[in-house]
């Protein structure tokens, strides 16, 4: 009788101890995973650091590359006099992706022959609105694009 009681008591202590450990495990596992740095170790800022350099843009046949800015697609391109410009890459007519035409010195949408100047103004064809501009800043080899003036 007495031994039976001890076993029961022992079992309860075991479940209690196990439960505490398991619960602590359930609490600490996500916490441990959380503090493990993710593959990209920091948040991207609204000033976007591009993963390529000016040389990469110059190497492109169209003298332009695309970049992802939040939910938006942008295009960065070599203007004349080697100035870098960046615009939204989404045509304001029917949302096709625009491209650089270094031979014409304009940004061009192939879908319906829409044309934009390098500062984003819709200058020909169906586009109803200009493309919005990104600010480009070069620090050494690194290119930053942002929407703000900073």
């Amino acid at each position: 009788m007495a031994s039976d009681k001890t076993t029961r008591r022992g079992f309860l202590e075991f479940v209690l101890g196990g439960g505490v450990i398991a619960t602590l495990g359930a609490i600490f596992y996500p916490m441990f995973k959380y503090i493990t740095p993710p593959p990209v170790a920091e948040a991207k800022l609204s000033q976007l650091k591009l993963s390529f350099t000016r040389a990469d843009i110059e190497a492109e046949k169209q003298k332009a590359k695309y970049f992802k800015y939040g939910r938006h697609l942008g295009i960065i391109f070599l203007e004349d006099k080697n100035v870098l410009g960046a615009l939204s890459a989404i045509c304001t007519h029917l949302q096709c992706t625009v491209q650089n035409r270094p031979d014409w010195g304009i940004i061009w949408c192939a879908c319906h022959n829409g044309k934009y100047s390098y500062d984003g103004k819709n200058i020909s064809g169906p586009p109803p609105r200009p493309l919005f501009q990104f600010k480009v800043k070069e620090v050494g080899d690194t290119i930053f694009v942002s929407l703000e003036d900073s």
Partner: peptide, 10 residues
């Protein structure tokens, strides 16, 4: 499940 077991034991 863990929490429930612990709660019942407690």
């Amino acid at each position: 499940l863990f929490i429930t077991i612990l709660a019942i034991a407690l």
